[in-house]
Nucleic acid binder design. Structure first.
Lengths: 149, 149
DNA sequence: GCATATAGTTAAGCCTGCTTAACTAAAAAG
DNA sequence: CTTTTTAGTTAAGCAGGCTTAACTATATGC
């Protein structure tokens, strides 16, 4: 029997463990690649949501259009993104990850995931079944919550 | 039956969902409080690991001693940390969260946790039991992994 | 077709974060 | 007791990120 408060504590503990581990890894990766955090965040956004315009960047990160434009410019200079004209609206630009940028983000994700694989290899078959079922429940609950908000 | 690769995928999916949600919340909180990311990271470190010296900051965040000292100075100016002489070594300083800094971090954590509580409230008793047991397994596996590294 | 709104760029100016180098003060080593 | 190491501060200088304001170019509304 696991009541609501008890389960909250368990999840919080897991969150702390997991966040700490994950953040340490990411910040190391960002530092090692010589990017700044804002630059990195944009690459992540492009990786997960695909190509977008400058305005979407400034909306998403709550900065001015000018800031987003300058940030994009630096990423273009570093060869991490490509900036093209939007064929449907010649005022707009489309930015997307270059192959270099893609590699950089994917290698970071891969390293984060490697930890997960090690975690999994420490579980036996029965534990894996339980954990799998539970995380599906959580992921679904999170998706449902996202919708209602 | 959940095999290793399948479980890895499930955890990755949960990680993505959870990280995305959590990062969005934190970056909003940091922006709202007017802190910079490095300042925020130091406050988090102080919250989770307690008081420490300047050198521990520079080690942890891989910056020079000078940078850590300047960062600490700004946090003292903002009233977010307190800096005192280490009674055991008068060369060293001890920095720790002020009550203002503590409140700021705790309110951020509280907001993150609120999401967890909502998540939990979407689960029934049986699901809660399953999820609780599974996350304990994962947290323990993570702790074991941490030790061996 | 002309006025207005929208997408993005550029420049000036400020603040933060970082580095190196020079410094003070205290502890540890000999 | 002197030398060396360790902890931290300060100053100069650079780069990044941000803002506002002025600007260009395209799209939209009437």
């Amino acid at each position: 029997m696991t009541d609501q408060a008890q389960l909250s504590r368990i999840i919080r503990k897991w969150m702390d463990t997991f966040m700490h581990r994950s953040m340490r890894g990411w910040s190391h990766h960002v530092k090692a690649t010589g990017m700044s955090m804002p630059q990195f965040s944009i690459l992540m956004q492009l990786h997960y949501k695909g190509a977008c315009g400058i305005s979407e960047i400034s909306d998403r990160f709550e900065v001015s259009n000018a800031a987003a434009s300058q940030l994009a410019e630096r990423l273009v200079q570093s060869g991490l993104i490509e900036r093209t004209e939007d064929p449907d609206d010649r005022r707009a630009k489309l930015i997307k990850l270059s192959s270099k940028g893609k590699k950089l983000i994917e290698s970071g994700i891969e390293q984060r995931y490697r930890w997960v694989d090690e975690l999994v290899s420490n579980l036996n078959a029965e534990e894996r079944t339980k954990v799998g079922a539970a995380l599906i429940l959580l992921t679904e609950a999170a998706a449902k919550l996202e919708q209602t908000q």
